[in-house]
Write a protein that binds this DNA or RNA. Structure first.
Lengths: 214, 214
DNA sequence: CGTTAATAGATATTTTAATATCAATATAAA
DNA sequence: TTTATATTGATATTAAAATATCTATTAACG
């Protein structure tokens, strides 16, 4: 295939958790933090945290730790979350509405500027402050506002068609919450969230706790 | 720490996607499948699929492939999804409601039998067919029905307290959708879903597509 | 029947991630 | 000041995951 290989993906996946904790710490008035502290909070080893932070290019002070502010800035910059990016959301069903109501995205520099659906009773309304437009207008509005991220929460049957609309609208990255494996042209990023993956891991861990390793 | 080390976690995380596709294939009337076919659908390499399936203990036939039925059964058994397990859900807000409405859980042998909340206007109602009870009754009902999984979707401020209620009710595994890093006794499994992890990965991939590697 | 292509399974290899070790630095306590 | 402790950063090591290679098996086709 295929997508140039992205390295240190496990580290990248942990960065948002560090970022969240660091924001809390800043709010609490801490200005310094050690990897031991961050690790304890996440139940992982300090060495893992240190290696993870390394990829952002931030440096700490031996014997002391890192400046909370610097660390937050470094993580945000590395992830491209230092400037807000705008996103569209397609499918204002229960999951879509939940995502529209999710406050945390602001911390991640993501702003959902419009939602799209086909249900006549939703079009023209606002969900958690976000206006719902007719799905067919997605490409037009996407182009108009130069949106490059799309959040896909439609039923499986229309997932591919709506993804195509997003691509038509110039969207470069699709956050795919459907169960469909999308086919997209070269250069379009798809990030699929499979909620059952977490359940699978939990199921295995639980079996271990209940029965030990078979 | 610290959780005995669980191996092949990446493989475990991919199993639900295979399972989903296999169920579709069975519905379409296919009885055989090759790793090439499954891999193509998920945009990964066939060798990865073969190694993943290996952990379930299933065997295929050289030159032919696997029996779809056998494969489904093997994956379900490995994940403990061959018998339905019952779960409770705490926090019937927008995310909790979305999860209550999620159909896919049936495929994964998960049944949410009750929801809990503190909001007086929700208690006694049904959300997607699931009755909402007063949060304080969680331990009592959990014990009564011998539930061992809890789904946590409450606001951060009450997350630890509600997790404690779950543990009091005999729950052994908590699927944690909050931003809080829970503290739990030995033997309790916590699976935390950090939605921003996927966004972080997507952000890095997008940077690569837009700018190339820095 | 013989040939070709596709496949699983076994094993080996490579790549990547996690972890350990150690030196240098800073802080706090004695 | 001295000592003990905690820290980062660099390097080395180990463990795990991904990938390659090869063999035996099967089906399809001429």
């Amino acid at each position: 295939m295929n997508n140039a290989r992205i390295q240190k993906l496990p580290s990248i996946r942990r960065l948002p958790s560090y970022l969240h904790r660091l924001n809390e710490m800043r709010f609490e008035g801490c200005d310094k933090v050690s990897t031991t502290l961050l690790a304890g909070h996440m139940n992982i080893e300090p060495i893992v945290v240190r290696k993870d932070l390394e990829i952002t290019g931030v440096t700490g002070q031996p014997g002391v730790g890192y400046q909370v502010d610097e660390l937050i800035a470094a993580i945000k910059k590395f992830l491209g979350w230092d400037n807000t990016s705008e996103a569209l959301l397609a499918g204002a069903g229960s999951l879509g509405s939940a995502l529209l109501g999710y406050q945390g995205f602001e911390d991640y520099g993501l702003k959902i500027i419009a939602a799209f659906d086909t249900a006549a009773d939703k079009i023209g309304t606002r969900i958690h402050g976000c206006e719902v437009f007719e799905l067919a207008r997605l490409p037009e509005l996407s182009r108009k506002f130069h949106v490059c991220m799309g959040i896909l929460c439609v039923p499986p049957a229309s997932a591919q068609a709506v993804a195509d609309l997003m691509i038509e609208g110039g969207i470069r990255a699709i956050w795919n919450f459907t169960s469909v494996s999308l086919q997209v042209p070269e250069g379009i990023v798809v990030q699929r969230e499979v909620i059952a993956s977490g359940l699978a891991v939990m199921s295995i861990k639980l079996q271990y706790e209940l029965n030990g390793w078979k």
